[in-house]
């Protein structure tokens, strides 16, 4: 069931990507085209909001942009018209005073406009300040170099790099870091908030439309800052409950020789010192929790699609795919690798 959900989403994901890529090449040359494009790329656009926070921010942004466009046209026009009326016969120097004009158009009028913008800023801050008591679900996220550790404290399980949230409900997110400063940012849902070691920040997350929303670490956090991607799945209630139930379960016991061998390979290669697979003796905390790794769309913190080929490439060769990450490359026989991957694929 869970597996079907995942695979039915994947093509949809691809379709959106393909559309946006094609639109990109056509529209990239003109400014209106660019703005149109910004509206189109659904998954990760601040201007295509899918939750109340981003919605309010996008509206505010468009209003300021419209205001800026008007002022821009006025000033550039004044500059060009003023400087176009050259009179070559006029050799005189001019000494007019313009303090009055400057006081009105440079101080009084901008002062009023800016005061309004400041007032609107305070109003928006107040709108966005949802109290934590309104939350119907809570999540704790810990930033690592270079992946996301995710806890659901009310349901008592841990996962990584992919968050599911119930549609239309306020979700209280607690953010911190295990090493350096990272930053949590899902443009279509929310503005960003830093994840700082020794400090916990809190933000309310809410999605109004079902979908998968992409985000990336937004504070430079070292060599692989570029490959620290987070996905938020906004699920309707049934899907969400099923997902929670599945995540709470321990990993199943291997029910074939191949899977047994795979699990054996896992332990023989000391994977358990870094990874956790609930229901086994593997309880390492250095890398992502693998209890339900096969239920995730991507591996390597959103860098690679979760396919057998990518898994194999990752295990053998992750240091050239994502240099400096904390996992070493492993050397193993093709049979062992096949068994290990089969076992990992069984962790749904």
């Amino acid at each position: 069931m869970q597996d079907e959900t995942r695979h039915s989403r994947a093509p949809e994901l691809k379709r959106i990507h393909r559309t946006s890529t094609r639109t990109t090449s056509i529209a990239a040359t003109t400014l209106p085209g660019l703005l149109f494009l910004a509206q189109q790329s659904g998954l990760t656009s601040a201007l295509d909001p899918k939750g109340p926070r981003s919605e309010l921010i996008a509206r505010f942004f468009w209003a300021l942009l419209a205001l800026a466009a008007v002022i821009f046209v006025i000033f550039v026009a004044l500059f060009l018209i003023g400087s176009a009326k050259h009179n070559p016969g006029d050799q005189r120097l001019h000494f007019a005073n313009g303090t009055g004009v400057v006081s009105v158009f440079g101080i009084a009028i901008p002062g009023v406009i800016l005061l309004v913008i400041f007032g609107a800023t305070l109003w928006a801050l107040n709108e966005l300040a949802t109290p934590a008591s309104a939350a119907e679900e809570s999540i704790e996220i810990v930033g690592h170099q270079w992946w996301w550790e995710i806890h659901y404290p009310d349901h008592d399980f841990t996962t990584a790099n992919e968050i599911h949230i119930p549609l239309g409900k306020d979700v209280h997110v607690k953010l911190t870091s295990a090493d350096v400063i990272h930053s949590f940012w899902i443009p279509s849902l929310s503005d960003k908030l830093d994840m700082i070691p020794g400090k916990t920040n809190e933000i309310m997350l809410k999605a109004d439309t079902p979908g998968i929303y992409r985000g990336q670490c937004a504070e430079f956090c070292g060599a692989q800052h570029a490959n620290m991607i987070l996905r938020v799945f906004a699920d309707n209630d049934d899907t969400y409950d099923a997902w929670i139930a599945n995540q709470q379960a321990d990993a199943g016991i291997p029910d074939s020789d191949l899977l047994e061998r795979g699990q054996q390979v896992y332990f023989n290669n000391a994977c358990m010192y870094c990874h956790t697979v609930a229901g086994t003796s593997s309880s390492g905390k250095i890398g992502p929790d693998l209890t339900h790794v096969a239920s995730r769309d991507y591996i390597a913190a959103g860098m690679l699609e979760n396919t057998q080929g990518n898994l194999a490439g990752w295990i053998l060769n992750n240091q050239s795919l994502k240099p400096n990450n904390q996992m070493p490359n492993f050397v193993m026989s093709p049979e062992d690798l096949q068994a290990l991957i089969a076992w990992l694929e069984s962790l749904k």
């Binding site: 946006s20 990109t24 703005l35």
Partner: peptide
């Protein structure tokens, strides 16, 4: 535009399926 499309600064690379290429 790229910033509004979610591209963080200081990334040494990006995936080809996000719409940032062109």
């Amino acid at each position: 535009i790229l910033g509004l499309l979610g591209m963080p600064r200081r990334v040494y690379t990006y995936n080809d399926n996000i719409g940032w290429d062109a």
